[in-house]
Structures are given as structure tokens and as C-alpha cells.
């Protein structure tokens, strides 16, 4: 019974991370900002470390606030380097996130005695330990702390996208027109970036700073190959996320390896299937039709 519950909580948490990230990822890839998502996920590290040092816990408000603001700062620095400094866009991204990530690693090394973050955690998180950290007990069922936090994250992200759907959709499709009719495109941009930062920070403990990129981009890209209808794309990306969490978990158990790594691998498998067999936009469909 206990064992079954362990599986359940890990798969649930994996799915929650995957869904929160996938929803945001749909906007990121359509805005051609996938690598900015990558940059944010790396650069929140020093924010997490400093805030963790101040508050002593990985899932405190301080950490979320500190790291989210650092994510926003990252997008801001990238834009400044690009517009003011004359550094080309892709180089500006690379320069910014490597620096902030390096600072994060140095901070971890400098406080290695006091911090409960190690390099493994940064790389692939500790989703396997989620069931051990019980947050609350309802009707005799022990609910892990992370499951609660990740549910809140999913709720916040989906509410934001539900309420802001029109603005996000418009500014993603045609920012110039949006500007012309007086829509606050910058506000929407930073709102989305704040959401991406928040999602990366909250997912950090489960999947680490690097593999979260897979969660952001791969399910969204898979869904993009399968449909031409945006709400379906959002939904499908979540489905891919859940399927990957489920199969990924058992792959990890089978190989006795990292769960987050296995989930990312499964996301890659689903993407490859879509790449080959997607009805309209897949490789085979295109080759056969021409």
C-alpha cells in the first residue's frame, strides 16, 4: 500500500510540474523564446541560493520571490545587452545565463556547510524524496508538502492563462498590431516571464534547474506538431506531460536512475513519435505528400 502511494505521489508531482511548465511552454515556443525559458531556468539559481540562505527553506515565500525577481532580471539584462550594448540576441542569452548560473554554483560552494542544496539537486532535482516530506494529513491520508505546493503552482498558472488568455494570445501572435491598438505588450511579456520564473523556481526541488527546460519546451513542441488549434495545443501538451511522467517514472524504476531524467527522456520519445508520425506536420506526412 505504502509503495503504491509513493508511486502515486511522485507521478502526480511530476505531472503537476509537467502541466504547469507545458502551458507556459506553448506560449514560449510560439513567441520564439524557448531559449529565454532555458536562460531563466538557469539564472534563478543564485536567487534560490541567496533566498534559501536567508530563509533556510527551499519552498518559502522568500525563495519564490527572490528567484522570480531574478528570472525577470535575466530577461531585462538580456534585452539591455541586446538593445543598449549591441550584443546580438543569442549571444546575450548565453552570456547572461552562464554568468548567473556560475554565480549560483559559487554561492553553493561557498556555503556548502550550511546549505542543503547540492549539485545533484541543481542538475536533476530530488523528486524521488517527495513522499518522505509530509505536509499535512487529510482523512488519514498523508499528503506530501511538495504535492500541495505544486498543486498551488498549477492552479496559479492555469488561472493566469485562463484570465489572461486573450492578451497572451494576441501579443504572442502579432505584437506589432497589439502595440498599434494600444495593448500593453510589455506588461504581458513580463507577466509571462514572471510566470516562467515562478514555475522554474517551484519545480526546482523536483526536477532541478536544467531538466525543467525539457518540461517547458518538449511537451509544448510535441503538441504543436499535432494540432492547429491553440486550446487543443494547451491540452495536448498537458497530456504529453502526464504520459511522460507516468512512463518516465517506471522507466526510472526499471533502470534505477534519475526520475526527472527518465521523464525528460520519455518526453523526447513522445516528441520523436510526433516528429515522425504527426498527421499533418510530421516528417512522414510531409515526405509522403510531396
Amino acid at each position: 500500500m505504502d509503495f503504491w502511494f509513493n508511486d502515486f505521489w511522485i507521478i502526480l508531482c511530476g505531472s503537476l510540474v509537467a502541466m504547469s511548465c507545458a502551458i507556459l511552454g506553448c506560449f514560449l515556443i510560439l513567441r520564439k523564446m524557448a531559449m529565454v525559458g532555458d536562460a531563466i531556468s538557469h539564472s534563478v539559481l543564485p536567487g534560490i541560493v541567496v533566498a534559501f540562505f536567508l530563509s533556510g527553506s527551499l519552498s518559502s515565500w522568500t525563495v519564490m520571490l527572490g528567484a522570480t525577481s531574478l528570472g525577470l532580471l535575466t530577461t531585462f539584462i538580456i534585452e539591455m545587452l541586446n538593445k543598449r550594448g549591441g550584443v546580438q540576441a543569442d549571444a546575450a542569452i548565453g552570456l547572461t545565463f552562464t554568468f548567473l548560473f556560475a554565480v549560483g554554483v559559487i554561492l553553493i560552494a561557498a556555503n556548502s556547510g550550511n546549505l542543503h542544496i547540492d549539485q545533484d539537486c541543481v542538475l536533476h532535482g530530488e523528486i524521488a524524496y517527495i513522499p518522505l516530506d509530509i505536509g499535512t494529513t487529510i482523512a488519514g491520508i498523508e499528503i506530501p508538502r511538495q504535492a500541495i505546493i505544486l498543486s498551488v503552482l498549477f492552479f496559479v498558472i492555469s488561472t493566469l492563462v485562463y484570465l489572461g488568455y486573450r492578451g497572451l494570445f494576441l501579443t504572442t501572435f502579432d505584437p506589432e498590431y497589439a502595440d498599434a491598438i494600444g495593448v500593453k505588450t510589455t506588461t504581458w511579456h513580463y507577466l509571462l516571464m514572471a510566470a516562467v520564473s515562478l514555475a522554474t523556481v517551484v519545480s526546482f526541488e523536483s526536477v532541478g534547474a536544467i531538466l525543467v527546460v525539457a518540461f517547458l519546451i518538449v511537451p509544448a513542441a510535441t503538441a504543436y506538431l499535432l494540432t492547429d488549434h491553440f486550446p487543443s495545443m494547451l491540452l495536448l501538451s498537458c497530456v504529453v506531460g502526464i504520459l511522460s511522467s507516468f512512463t518516465g517514472y517506471y522507466l526510472a524504476v526499471y533502470l534505477d536512475g534519475s526520475i526527472a531524467g527518465a521523464i525528460s527522456t520519455m518526453m523526447g520519445v513522445f516528441f520523436s513519435l510526433a516528429f515522425l508520425f504527426a498527421p499533418k506536420h510530421g516528417y512522414l506526412a510531409k515526405r509522403l505528400s510531396t
Binding site: 486573450r166 494570445f169 504572442t172 501572435f173 502579432d174 495593448v183 488549434h229 487543443s232
Partner: peptide, 19 residues
């Protein structure tokens, strides 16, 4: 704009009602 965007004609026209 990128016409590969997953939207229908109706979705695009509705954008005119945003303001």
C-alpha cells in the same frame, strides 16, 4: 506574423475586439 500559429480565422478577427 508567423502564419503557422495555431489559430483560426475567427480567433484572429476576434483580436480586433480586444480593446
Amino acid at each position: 506574423v508567423d502564419w503557422d500559429f495555431p489559430a483560426s480565422a475567427m480567433d484572429v478577427v476576434l483580436m480586433g475586439r480586444y480593446s
